[in-house]
């Protein structure tokens, strides 16, 4: 039986033809480079050149040398803290905009929330340095109010400042997916919850929250994955004890010319992120089977 439709099958080929320019671009400039650094991470570093000899030494160094291990673990900790802070702080805002803002003004609120994200990232990070610094806004404010006698020093050049700055940078990323999920909730479901005898709060816990979970999961991932690789923030406000994995990678590549070790660190970081993300997705899987 000849089942292949005349004229059909062109659908698949026109689709492939159309998608091929961006696909080839991504293949050549993304997939191939990623494969290359994975390959490099198994090569041996010779001075100023890469020796094509298979070794696991780079991974050994990455995972055993306390210098690298500490930075790796710290990056992970910072990412987890940033993600938790960002998502927890963002949820009520998304909830407010979705449930308490007049529909005609919702896009204005979203616009206001997204604007800071589009302004110079470098300058924003630098300004956090100004806000949190020794003579910064927070300290001078608290001093003039008489709450403290001398400037607080734990604000800047450590993990705290990195967390605060990153939480600020990724705020819109966290708000938007949650907002989208909340918007999709049929409002009559909430009325049904209350109609069936639940309080507002219980309705929130039993109806709203589970239905908003896909958005929460999306914002967790969209914040967690890139933060671990952030370079500017730890560099500018982290100080020596706020260094993160991106600074390490930069050091290996641009200063020490140790591509294999740099690659091993980068691949390890990606690996950890991927594994944690998959575990997280697995744990929240039951919320994600959203009926279409």
């Amino acid at each position: 039986m000849k089942r292949s439709a005349r004229g059909a099958g062109t659908e698949a080929s026109s689709g492939l033809l159309l998608v091929s320019p961006p696909a080839i671009y991504a293949l050549v400039l993304l997939a191939a480079p990623l494969a290359t650094i994975i390959l490099y991470s198994f090569f041996t570093d010779g001075y100023l050149e890469v020796i094509r000899e298979f070794t696991l030494a780079n991974y050994w160094e990455t995972w055993v040398n306390p210098l690298y291990r500490t930075v790796m673990l710290r990056s992970l900790l910072v990412s987890v803290l940033v993600t938790a802070a960002t998502v927890l702080l963002a949820f009520p805002v998304a909830y407010f905009v979705s449930f308490h803002v007049d529909p005609s003004r919702k896009s204005l609120w979203l616009f206001l929330i997204t604007i800071p994200f589009w302004t110079s990232y470098l300058i924003r990070v630098f300004l956090w340095k100004v806000i949190l610094g020794y003579n910064g806004v927070v300290n001078s404010g608290l001093l003039s109010l008489g709450i403290i006698d001398e400037p607080l020093t734990f604000l800047l050049y450590n993990t705290n400042s990195v967390v605060i700055t990153l939480a600020h940078a990724y705020a819109p990323f966290a708000i938007l997916p949650i907002f989208v999920a909340l918007e999709k909730i049929d409002r009559s479901l909430l009325e049904a919850g209350q109609d069936l005898g639940e309080t507002k709060f219980a309705t929130f816990c039993r109806v709203t929250l589970p239905l908003a979970m896909p958005g929460v999961v999306a914002s967790v991932l969209i914040v967690f994955i890139p933060t671990i690789g952030d370079y500017v923030t730890p560099q500018l406000v982290g100080g020596p004890e706020g260094r993160m994995v991106a600074n390490l990678i930069q050091l290996q590549y641009l200063r020490l010319d140790n591509y294999p070790l740099g690659s091993a660190i980068a691949v390890s970081a990606m690996g950890i992120v991927a594994i944690i993300s998959l575990i997280f997705l697995g744990l929240t899987r039951r919320y994600l089977r959203a009926p279409k």
């Binding site: 991504a26 994955i225 690789g229 370079y231 980068a266 970081a269």
Partner: peptide, 27 residues
Amino acid sequence: YKFPGKAGIMGLIMLPLVLPEIIVAVS
């Protein structure tokens, strides 16, 4: 269009959205 491998191809193209920039830069 529907075409074979659509999810994978689109996933690859959209990947930089979640990939740390430093990884893209060094690779």
